[in-house]
């Protein structure tokens, strides 16, 4: 960071807990890990902020697990996650604390409030941080860019820092040695809001077969035409206990139902074998399958991001490759597509 700045904030590094349906989401502990790496050069204590009505019972457990002090922030009318409320409550709080940095998960929640808050605070803002390094007092942040195919290194040149951190990029923090971390509670003023939560409709039902499958064969936009989906289906049929899945674009196109979607806003799966057919490997997809036991990727683009996390890379058009593979498995080449 530039040393010429006059009054650098001298307060804490604030980690804002990610909240899921079951309370503080595990990614929050990864954020604490990232905050510790940041603190190595930035200094300052690390403080975990847990917002909302359900925050209190969650906070003590979070403090114990993360090993850092927790501030529970409540406000009249503040119940579950609402981006605008988070932003309006955090903005004055971070300013009052003189926060050096604020960290959120790189999720639909974190991205809902953090960039706007960064604009308000004049913060250096980097989203989807996957690694950070200090060298000679200078910080380098790394994130994925260019369709998932390249990494970019960025140097913050303003203060405070506002970062969203890619889930899975940092290990979960363990409890620190020493006395039990403190939990304090503050009550913020009710923010004036331009939006309010309504009763949410049910999302698409989850495909239980997908969650249980030993093998997942997934189709991406590279499938090209809905007819080619039959090839992927026939490939899946070669494996016992296999389920067919799709990336978001394939589900948006209606070629597969949303219950078959794997990725950030779909299902997270970890089968023994994952075969990605025509999937580019955008982060939003790989977040849902990177824990698979063995990953095979078939894609005609040799630079497709999916190859970076594959065990076996097949640079081929799936329309040519799948029939060749099926033939090797002993299937007649010109087989009628199975009746659906």
């Amino acid at each position: 960071m530039s040393g010429s700045r006059q009054a650098l904030p001298a307060g804490p590094i604030v980690v804002v807990a990610e909240q899921g349906p079951e309370g503080v989401a595990p990614v929050s502990l990864e954020l604490v890990s990232c905050a510790r790496a940041l603190a190595a050069g930035l200094g300052g204590e690390i403080r975990l902020a847990v917002l909302g009505e359900k925050a209190r019972p969650l906070a003590e457990e979070a403090a114990r697990r993360a090993g850092c002090p927790v501030t529970v922030v409540r406000a009249p009318g503040l119940r579950e996650f609402q981006g605008e409320a988070w932003r309006e409550i955090l903005a004055p709080l971070l300013a009052a604390w003189g926060a050096r940095a604020v960290l959120a998960a790189h999720t639909t929640s974190g991205l809902d409030w953090l960039p706007g808050l960064a604009a308000r605070l004049g913060a250096a803002c980097v989203t989807g941080v996957e690694a950070l390094a200090w060298a000679g007092g200078a910080l380098t942040l790394t994130r994925t860019t260019l369709f998932g195919k390249a990494l970019e290194a960025l140097r913050p040149e303003a203060s405070p820092l506002a970062l969203t951190v890619q889930p899975g990029a940092f290990p979960a923090a363990g409890p620190a040695e020493g006395p039990e971390p403190t939990v304090e509670q503050i009550t913020a003023e009710a923010p004036a809001l331009c939006s309010r939560l309504l009763e949410a409709p049910e999302g698409p039902a989850r495909d239980q077969a997908l969650a249980r499958a030993r093998v997942v064969v997934a189709a991406g936009r590279g499938v090209g035409r809905p007819e080619n989906l039959d090839l992927v289906r026939r490939l899946a049929a070669r494996f016992s206990g296999a389920a067919l899945a799709g990336s978001r674009p394939v589900c948006d196109l209606g070629w597969l139902g949303y219950q078959s979607q794997v990725g950030q806003t779909g299902a997270a799966v970890a089968p023994r074998l994952y075969i990605a057919c025509g999937i580019s490997g955008a982060r939003q997809h790989t977040m849902g399958m990177q824990g698979s036991g063995f990953i095979v990727a078939v894609n005609s683009d040799p630079r497709a991001a999916i190859f970076n996390l594959a065990d076996v890379c097949v640079v081929e058009d799936l329309v040519a490759f799948i029939p060749a593979f099926l033939a090797r498995c002993g299937e007649p080449e010109a087989m009628d597509p199975p009746a659906s």
Binding site: K149, A150, L151, A153, L154, E157, A158, F307, C313, F321
Partner: peptide
Amino acid sequence: DRERLLGLAWPGRTRAGLTLEGDTA
């Protein structure tokens, strides 16, 4: 600018990434 781009690099591979050689068959 509040952030400066230092440069781009290819990502490392997180797994074996064995690229199969030869023709389709």
